[in-house]
Design a protein around this nucleic acid. Structure first.
Lengths: 111, 111
DNA sequence: TCGATAAATCAAGATATCATGAATTATGGA
DNA sequence: TCCATAATTCATGATATCTTGATTTATCGA
């Protein structure tokens, strides 16, 4: 991850529909969701959703695979890790204990 | 943190200068940096830097305190935690072990 | 009080982003 | 092959964002 990739990833997350999509896919886990279901769930038109999914794909935050006529989308945890690593690199001025709160805050919790 | 706050925070990070500033302040740790030093370090004009710092402040990603004629800025780890918690909430579809890679990726490292 | 330094604010022009209607591509079933 | 469904692509007008010059506010030292 370089600065340009990070800027485009944060740009992808800086729009309500796309942030909703990413969080929906994070919650959906390994099963992912089809493009159509995502649009229906969030009440967004088909072509608008397609454009927004494309931005998330380009940013490396989601992946997709075609299944017949539908396309299934997933959160890309590798891309997400790379982004957060870039954001927090060399953190806390040599006092790593200071950002333990950040690490603990994203510890996974069930529903 | 709600969806609007998260959108504005990611929007704040979706611009090269502001992302540079945030990462500089993350690396600077508790000592922070003055607005002037930040601008000089990054080669950004005074009023442009002030406008960008204001966006980061508004988004809750940095804090500041005045020290005489200078204003010192710090990364706001509380705001950062809130943002990442919101991003990753209810993650991985009930399989929390799947996003351990994300957590490990931001484990603090020295320089 | 006066001049100099540090930073914030304001208005405006340039650039980028966004949602939408229309058209196109891809796939499956009859 | 033909039709219907799922999704993407494209052009465009509306909106938002960004940088900049000019100005203003805040603070310090003389």
């Amino acid at each position: 991850m370089d600065i340009n990739g990070a800027v485009s990833a944060f740009g992808a997350l800086s729009q309500k529909t796309r942030l909703d999509v990413f969080r929906l896919l994070i919650a959906a886990g390994p099963e992912g969701m089809s493009a159509g279901d995502i649009g229906e769930t969030l009440g967004v038109r088909q072509n608008t959703m397609s454009a927004n999914l494309s931005v998330l794909l380009q940013a490396g935050l989601v992946r997709n695979t075609r299944e017949g006529r539908t396309v299934r989308y997933f959160a890309d945890l590798g891309g997400t890790s790379a982004l957060l690593t870039f954001l927090m690199s060399d953190c806390c001025g040599g006092h790593p204990e200071l950002c333990s709160q950040v690490i603990e805050s994203i510890t996974c919790r069930k529903s």
